[in-house]
């Protein structure tokens, strides 16, 4: 399948940004992390905006963007409908403490924003699950959208902690490491599954044209983030955390390229070893 770069940029931005907000919210609840959520919300909002602009470039007729709100049954419409609410919720988070104070309602605002962020990611993940593309026709797709968001989001939270001089509990760093490891394991499982998904579609990630992307992902998306987070366990370094985040984002991009390349269509007659042809 053709690689759709605007979609890769937009989904990477969305996953890193929204993942950061969700992880920061969960970390606050679980570890009592006192991260300024308005700073996290600025980061999320900026990435969401970049992702939104990128996704418009994917459209052949972007001036008709507002038609996207027409079909409630489509996951794309659901995603489009969530976007303005998510944007407003994030804006409230940004302004809370800067321009106005919502006081004890902060927890409600943060919770609503985190739920909307999660719903947005779920809609995006579900949009790609389709029977006509055997590699995508699996709950792995949704799981991977959520796990990659958590992986990058967790590393982004470490960056916030180190840059803002907030003590990151060891348990937080360990949980980021665990999230990353689970994500990488799931990605490997997805690659193994691609080797035989039926309908005449069998993709070996070590073969061309997948090899370069897969190796790039192993280095950028698996090895380097894991090393980076492990280093963060030993010493506090903003630079290491920022590099880990950049590598994780690059890794998600490489992974998404592989995701698109592997999304071959079902063969019309998979019972034959050869495919239909037009060579008359």
């Amino acid at each position: 399948m053709q690689i759709h770069w605007p979609l890769i940029i937009s989904t990477v931005c969305q996953r890193v940004g929204l993942g950061a907000f969700i992880f920061a919210y969960v970390a606050s609840a679980l570890f009592g992390l006192e991260l300024p959520m308005n700073v996290v919300a600025i980061f999320t909002l900026a990435l969401l905006a970049i992702g939104g602009v990128a996704s418009i470039f994917h459209l052949k007729r972007p001036q008709r963007f507002f038609n996207a709100f027409s079909n409630m049954g489509s996951h794309l419409t659901q995603e489009a409908l969530i976007t303005p609410f998510l944007g407003i919720a994030l804006l409230v988070c940004v302004l809370n403490g800067l321009i106005f104070e919502v006081g004890s309602a902060t927890i409600i605002v943060d919770t609503v924003t985190a739920v909307l962020a999660l719903a947005f990611l779920v809609c995006t993940g579900l949009a790609y699950q389709m029977g006509s593309r055997p590699a995508w026709n699996t709950p792995f797709v949704l799981a991977l959208f959520l796990l990659t968001a958590l992986e990058a989001g967790g590393i982004a939270v470490l960056v916030f902690c180190f840059v803002l001089n907030i003590t990151a509990p060891l348990l937080l760093i360990a949980s980021v490491l665990v999230c990353t490891a689970i994500c990488i394991t799931t990605q490997i499982a997805y690659v193994i599954r691609m080797r035989g998904v039926g309908y005449g579609v069998a993709i070996n990630a070590f073969d061309n044209p997948y090899r370069f992307t897969f190796v790039f992902w192993i280095i950028s998306g698996a090895a380097l983030p894991l090393i980076g987070i492990a280093l963060c366990l030993v010493f506090v370094s903003s630079l290491v955390a920022i590099c880990s985040l950049l590598f994780a984002a690059l890794g998600i991009a490489a992974w998404t390229v592989l995701f698109f390349k592997g999304a071959l269509k079902v063969k019309m007659f998979p019972m034959y070893s050869v495919d239909l042809n037009l060579d008359m």
Binding site: H58, F65, M130, M268
Partner: peptide, 16 residues
């Protein structure tokens, strides 16, 4: 007049 060329229908159609 409504289509904006997102191509999701092309991806979803199993029949090319």
């Amino acid at each position: 007049n409504r289509c904006f060329g997102c191509e999701y229908c092309i991806w979803a159609c199993p029949y090319e």
